[in-house]
Design a protein around this nucleic acid. Structure first.
Length: 489
RNA sequence: GGGCCAUUAGCUCAGUUGGCAGAGCACCUGACUUUUAAUCAGGGUGUCCCAGGUUCGAAUCCUGGAUGGCUCACCA
């Protein structure tokens, strides 16, 4: 038997339940007809004053005053005060309400009024017990702070920390707003496989699972990309998917092993169009959900109003490090890396060194919305090359608050070039790079049927939500972040 | 994976040089018919994360482990 089941708090609550049941009152009751939300009673007081309302929610506090009593009931919308008097509700019901524990779920009906202190209150005339709570809640004043408990028992976090509930309600509104934006532009929402024989579309170590009937291993997807492009080949001109990706990598404040991505593809667009779409989408979502395009993020004002700043990777690296990759040879690049403290691996190409310069010296500084354009071909195996500068691709990433938010390109639609890119990836993989792409013949075959010129965009939904909820850790915007299993005796 | 820090009551946290385990909220008993972190009187409810060790004596010191946080590395 679990030790907590023996502790006196739970004993006391079990006795209160028993007391009720002996009086013939069920401790776990029926559904209840709710007429209003708690917040609605607060907001619409002028209309509701003197009228009867019914609410369903959790009893969060009790203040007993002898033959009268105050309490607070909380539901999804917020909370409102309750008032009970012996000589309006009767001694028997009053005694039963006195026996309730903080945390009990109840349905109440009563008339709306204001106390002399001006607090909107419901004068309870009858109530039902919907579910007894057998465990004590965390403290009302300090809330629940222990990060481990907050994530493991997120329901407690949501009960006692209203600002946490607000983050997740906002998350829902942000995603709904993104869908509205895309739906209004004639994008089709689709669903593609999570279990994949070859995990493609990104550089990452995948999770492996096993299908018993097929007798083979499958991977959890690391990106949505390749299946969505197959749908472009299939004739859907504008598609998007919002879904979970899985990467077998460590945690950080901006990385979680499972995270939510939006990817979209639109025929007859290029990466320039994708930049416009990105800045329009994010600013419009911010306007719709927060009522502004200027937001506070960790003490910095961030202005999401289009157009966002645009720079090439070569330009921005030159600006932040003084190293000009425009006309540089490999040997000089290596020396500059050494000089500037950029860690590189032996055998890195010029493009890979440039990319390291960018990631190690520039990325964290891009606080205001910025598009960095024209990535080296070596690190962009799915993006189209720039014809008059084929060491680079039509690719950009969007940054806000020092974090990568978006990754997009003019999609590579030449199957011969794509095969060569995959072959280079496979060579890297054989040289020990676990994150390099695998050869995906099925994807090449699709391209061989012909994929129209297409722009594609990926957005890290969790990170956008971090920016729009002013949170500094990705786990604050994921309801149940991955944790090690709890140790059991 | 490396470094630093944390883990004490249901929750939030104190705990001095190694000497009886503490506070606030919550909870229990009683008073109180518009309070609001209600108030007043009384009551401490505990595997001090776990396992060893040192010591007359360990929440405190040592070793190992668990979990979490920050950070570096890894991860475009």
């Amino acid at each position: 038997m679990e030790k907590q089941e023996l502790n006196s708090f739970i004993q006391q609550r079990l006795e209160n339940l028993k007391w009720l049941q002996e009086k013939g009152i069920p401790g776990f009751g029926e559904k209840f007809l709710r007429t209003h939300w708690a917040q609605q009673v607060q907001d619409d007081f002028n209309e509701l004053e003197g009228k009867e309302v019914s609410l369903s929610g959790r009893l969060l506090s009790k203040r007993e005053h002898g033959k009268a009593m105050f309490g607070d009931i909380s539901d999804q919308s917020g909370s409102v005060q309750l008032y009970l008097r012996v000589n309006s509700i009767g001694e028997e019901k009053f005694e039963i309400f006195q026996s309730l524990d903080i945390g009990d779920l109840i349905g109440i009906t009563g008339e709306v009024f204001k106390t002399r202190r001006g607090e909107v209150t419901i004068n309870v005339s009858c109530f039902e017990i919907q579910a007894k709570s057998l465990r004590p809640l965390p403290e009302k004043w300090h809330g629940l702070k222990d990060v481990e408990l907050r994530y493991r028992q997120r329901y407690l976090d949501l009960i006692v920390n209203p600002e946490v509930r607000e983050i997740f309600m906002r998350r829902s509104r942000i995603i709904a707003s993104i869908r509205r934006f895309l739906d209004s532009r004639e994008f089709l929402e689709v669903e593609t496989p999570i279990l994949q024989p070859i995990p493609g579309g990104g550089n990452a170590r995948p999770f492996v699972t096993h299908h018993k009937t097929l007798g083979r291993d499958l991977y959890l997807r690391i990106a949505l990309e390749l299946y969505l492009k197959k749908l472009i080949v299939g004739g859907f001109d504008r598609v998007y998917e919002i879904g979970r990706n899985f990467r077998n990598e460590g945690f950080s404040y901006k990385h979680s092993p499972e995270f939510t991505m939006l990817e979209l593809y639109q025929v007859n667009t290029d990466y320039q169009d994708m930049m416009e779409l990105t800045e329009n989408m994010i600013s419009s979502v911010s306007q719709e959900v927060l009522g502004s395009q200027k937001i506070d993020y960790q003490g910095e004002e961030i202005d999401l109003t289009p157009p966002w700043k645009r720079m090439t990777m070569v330009e921005v690296v030159k600006e932040f490090t003084g190293v000009d990759f425009e006309n540089i040879d490999l040997e000089t690049a290596r020396e500059k890396a050494e000089e500037k403290g950029v860690r590189i691996k032996t055998g890195f190409s010029l493009g890979e060194i440039l990319n390291e310069f960018f990631e190690q010296k520039v990325e964290d500084n891009l606080i205001q919305p910025t598009f960095i354009m024209d990535y080296p071909v070596e690190v962009s195996p799915l993006a189209k090359k720039i014809p008059d500068n084929p060491d680079f691709t039509y690719r950009f990433e969007g940054f806000i608050g020092g974090m990568e938010m978006a990754n997009a390109f003019t999609e590579l639609n030449d199957p011969i070039d794509q095969r060569e890119r995959f072959e280079k990836q496979v060579a890297q993989r054989e040289a020990g790079d676990e994150e390099a792409h695998m050869m995906d013949e099925d994807f090449i075959r699709a391209l061989e049927y012909g994929m129209p010129p297409t722009g594609g965009l990926g957005i890290g939904i969790d990170r956008i939500i971090m920016v729009l909820t002013n949170t500094r850790n990705i786990r604050e915007v994921i309801l149940f972040p991955p944790m090690r299993p709890e140790e059991k005796e």
